[in-house]
Amino acid sequence: MKPRKVPTPGWNFEYLMWLFTRISGAAMLLLALIGFVGALIMGARYHMDLGTLMRWTFFPNPNHVLNSDIPDIAPWANAYWQIMQLLLVFFGATHGFNGLRLVLEEYIHSWGWQLALRLVLMILWLITLGAGFFLVLTS
C-alpha cells in the first residue's frame, strides 16, 4: 500500500474550518444562553409556554413568540435581538454547511466531484445566508 499524502500542518483551509467549527459551536451555546436568560428577564415565565421559550432560545425572532400571551412585542423585536439573530444565522449556516461538506466528502473521492460539491454547497450557503439575513432585517 502506497503511503498517503497528508496535508502540511499549519494554517490551511481544513485547520481553519476545524477551528471555526469549535469557535462557532461555543459561540452558539453562548448565544442560546443569552436568548434564554433574556427571555426570562422579559417575562417569559408569565406569558409563554416552554415550547415557545425553546423556539425563542434557538432563534430569538419575534415571529417565534408572536402567538404567545406577551402583552407587548416591542422588547422582543429590536436591533439588539436582530444582531443576536444575524450572528446566529451566520454561525449556524456556516457551521452547518461546512459540516455537511465534511460528511459528504468522506464518501466522494474524485477531485472533480469534490469541487462540484463544494461549489453547490457554497451557492446553497450563500442563498441561506441571504434569505436568513433578509428575514431577520424585515421581521
Binding site: N63, V89, G92, A93, G96, F97, G99, L100, V103, L124, I127, T128, A131, G132, F134, L135
Partner: peptide, 17 residues
Amino acid sequence: SGLGMILFIAGHVLAGF
C-alpha cells in the same frame, strides 16, 4: 442530528423567506 438540523433548519429559513 447535524444533518437533520442543516437540512431542515435551512429549509425552514427558506420557507420563511
